[in-house]
C-alpha cells in the first residue's frame, strides 16, 4: 500500500477546519502520486465521525478510550501501529495546538523523514517536496524527502477547507489498538475554559481594529456590527481609544497591549504608530483604511483604502451581508 494519509484533527469529537484543509491538500498530492487518499481517524468511537470525512476514498480508524481527546503519547502510539501495519507513502498532519509535536514523535520513533512548518506539499516524481516558512516568514525553504513513509506537518490556513466538507458513507478499515495504550503515562484530565470576562483578541481569526478615526464612542457600534459579519471576529483598537476608556485594555493591540496575528487585520482609522505596528505586523492579511494617504499604516498593509471609515464601514457591511461568514 502506498496511500496518502491525512490525520483527522478533532476537537471535542468533531473534525476541525484544519482536517478539511489537509484533506484538500491530500487530494492534490494523491492525484499526483496516483494513489488513494485516506483519512486516519483516532478516537473513542470512529463510526460516528467517519462519514464526515467523506472527501477521502477511505478511512483508517482506531477506536480506544484513550484516543477520545488529543493526547500526544496515546495518539503517537496509535499512529505508529497504523504506520507499521499499513504504511502509506505520505502522512499529512496539520499543525494545530493539539497536534503540535505529534509528527516529530512519530517520525522520531521510527526514523522517518519529516518536513515541518509547510505551507504546501507536492510530489516531484518519487520525492516529496515541502516548503517550510522559517523565522516568522522571513525565509522560505524547499525541502526534499526520499523514501518513506514521509511525514509532513502542514500549517493551518494553507489550503481551502471548503471542497473537502463532504458527508458520505466511506469504507472504514479498523486497526486494533496496540497494548501500549494501556501502559501510557499521560492521561487527559479535563478541558478548562479560560475564565475570561472578555474575548481574547489573540485568538481571533479576524480583528476589526479601530483608531482615532472612529471619532466618537457611539461609532464603535458600527465596528461591532462589521465584526459580527465574520466568524471568530472581534473589535480591537489602538491605544488612544483604550486610554479614553472607550474600550477595555484587553482589546488594545500594540507594544503595551496584545501582539496579534489574525488571518485578517482590518485597520480602520489607525495611522500606524510604531508601537501599534509592532503588535500587528505579523497578521496574515492587513487591510488599512485611512483618510490620510501618507499614514504609515499603509507601508505595512497588504491592501489600502483612502477613505473616511465612517463612510466606508457601512458600505463594507452592505457588501459583506451578501456573503456568508467563513473562516478556517
Amino acid at each position: 500500500m502506498a496511500d496518502v494519509y491525512v490525520l483527522a484533527d478533532l476537537e471535542r469529537g468533531r473534525p476541525t477546519d484544519l482536517t478539511f484543509e489537509l484533506l484538500t491538500a491530500g487530494r492534490a498530492l494523491a492525484s499526483d502520486l496516483h494513489v488513494p487518499l485516506k483519512a486516519v481517524l483516532l478516537t473513542n468511537e470512529a463510526g460516528l465521525i467517519a462519514p464526515s470525512l467523506g472527501f477521502a476514498d477511505g478511512v483508517v480508524a482506531m477506536s480506544h478510550s484513550s484516543l477520545e481527546h488529543r493526547n500526544l503519547e496515546a495518539w503517537s502510539r496509535a499512529l505508529l501501529k497504523i504506520l507499521d501495519e499499513k504504511p502509506p507513502k505520505v502522512l499529512l498532519i496539520g499543525i494545530s495546538n493539539g497536534l503540535l509535536g505529534l509528527p516529530s514523535l512519530v517520525a522520531g520513533a521510527r526514523g522517518l523523514p519529516l518536513i515541518s512548518l509547510c505551507r504546501s506539499v507536492t510530489a516531484h516524481g518519487e520525492e516529496i517536496v515541502g516548503d517550510p516558512v522559517l523565522f516568522g516568514g522571513k525565509i522560505e525553504a524547499e525541502v526534499h524527502a526520499k523514501g518513506g513513509p514521509v511525514v509532513v506537518a502542514v500549517r493551518p490556513g494553507s489550503y481551502s477547507a471548503e471542497p473537502a466538507r463532504v458527508q458520505r458513507t466511506v469504507p472504514v478499515e479498523n486497526v486494533e489498538p496496540p497494548e501500549a495504550l494501556e501502559t501510557r503515562r499521560v492521561h487527559f484530565k479535563r478541558y478548562a475554559d479560560l475564565e475570561q470576562t472578555d474575548v481574547d483578541i489573540t485568538h481571533c481569526d479576524v480583528l476589526i481594529s479601530i483608531g482615532r478615526g472612529i471619532q466618537s464612542q457611539e461609532n464603535i457600534r458600527i465596528a461591532e456590527e462589521l465584526s459580527g459579519l465574520f466568524r471568530n471576529a472581534a473589535v480591537s483598537s489602538s491605544r488612544p481609544l483604550v486610554d479614553q476608556g472607550w474600550l477595555p485594555r484587553t482589546r488594545q493591540v500594540g507594544r503595551s497591549g496584545m501582539t496579534v496575528k489574525p488571518r485578517l487585520y482590518l485597520a480602520l482609522g489607525i495611522s500606524g504608530a510604531p508601537e501599534h505596528i509592532e503588535g500587528m505586523k505579523s497578521s496574515e492579511t492587513i487591510v488599512a483604511v485611512n483618510t490620510d494617504p501618507k499614514a504609515p499604516v499603509f507601508e505595512y498593509a497588504h491592501y489600502g483604502v483612502v477613505a473616511d471609515i465612517l463612510t466606508f464601514m457601512p458600505r463594507l457591511a452592505e457588501q459583506l451581508r451578501k456573503r456568508k461568514p467563513v473562516v478556517a
Binding site: 482615532r212 491605544r239 488612544p240 486610554d243 479614553q244 504608530a273
Partner: peptide, 14 residues
C-alpha cells in the same frame, strides 16, 4: 514629538 502627539490624540485636540 511622539509623546505629545500621542497626548494630543488621546485628548482629541487634533
Amino acid at each position: 514629538v511622539s509623546r505629545f502627539e500621542d497626548a494630543v490624540k488621546v485628548l482629541g485636540y487634533d
